[in-house]
C-alpha cells in the first residue's frame, strides 16, 4: 500500500482514546461543540473496533490545540503521554518484566504490535525500530503511513517519565512527519 498521509485509516481505538483525552482536557461540553463545528464524515461516532481516516484525527487534534492555544504537534505529544498511561494501566503484564525505559521502548515494535495483529490482522501499524547506541543512548526510527511523529515523541517522553529518568529527545534525522529518527540521550 502506497497511501501516505491523511487518507490512511487509523484504528478506532486511537479515536476513542483521543476523545477521552479531549474530555479530560476541555470538558464534555467543549468537546461536543468542537466536534459539532468540525462536521466530520463519521459524525465522530467512533467505536474502538472500526477504522477511520487519519484526516479526522488531525482535524480533531488541530481544533483541540486551537482551543487551548497550542499547535497540533503539542496535542500529539500530549496524546503520546496519554496513550502510554492507558497502555501500561490496561496491559500491566507487558510492562512487568521491563526494567528500563529502553526495555519498554524496544518491545513496542516486537511484542506489542504482535499482539495487536492477532486482534486486527488488517491493522496498518507504524514501525518503531530501535538501536542501542550505548548504556544511556538509544535511537528510535519512527516510520508510518501517517504523519504522527510528534505522537511518537510524546510516547518516548512518557516512557522516560514512567521510569523516573530524564533525558533529551532530539530529532536526529528529519525525513518528514512520517519518517523520523529520534536520538534519546539519558541524563545521569
Amino acid at each position: 500500500m502506497n497511501r501516505v498521509g491523511l487518507e490512511v485509516p487509523v484504528k478506532g481505538m486511537i479515536f476513542t482514546e483521543l476523545l477521552d483525552l479531549a474530555d479530560h482536557l476541555a470538558g464534555e461540553e467543549a468537546v461536543d461543540k468542537l466536534l459539532d463545528d468540525l462536521d466530520l464524515d463519521s459524525d465522530a461516532a467512533y467505536t474502538s473496533v472500526g477504522n477511520y481516516p487519519c484526516s479526522e484525527l488531525v482535524q480533531i487534534m488541530t481544533a483541540l490545540g486551537a482551543q487551548s492555544g497550542v499547535s497540533c504537534d503539542e496535542v500529539q505529544r500530549e496524546f503520546g503521554h496519554w496513550v502510554l498511561g492507558i497502555f501500561t494501566d490496561r496491559y500491566p503484564h507487558f510492562v512487568k518484566d521491563k526494567h528500563t525505559a529502553f526495555d519498554l521502548l524496544e518491545v513496542i515494535e516486537t511484542e506489542v504490535h504482535a499482539e495487536v495483529r492477532k486482534l486486527y490482522p488488517d491493522a496498518e501499524l507504524p514501525t518503531f525500530r530501535t538501536r542501542r547506541l550505548g548504556p544511556d543512548r538509544m535511537e528510535m526510527h519512527y516510520h508510518s503511513e501517517r504523519p504522527l511523529r510528534s505522537f511518537c515523541h510524546g510516547l518516548i517522553e512518557a516512557c522516560l517519565q514512567r521510569y523516573g529518568v530524564t533525558g533529551q529527545v532530539r530529532i536526529a534525522q528529519d525525513n518528514g512527519a512520517s519518517d523520523t529518527v529520534f536520538d534519546i540521550q539519558l541524563e545521569r
Partner: peptide, 11 residues
C-alpha cells in the same frame, strides 16, 4: 448520547 449510540450501532 446520539454519538455514543451511533458508535455502538457501528460496533
Amino acid at each position: 448520547y446520539e454519538r455514543e449510540r451511533r458508535g455502538r450501532q457501528e460496533a
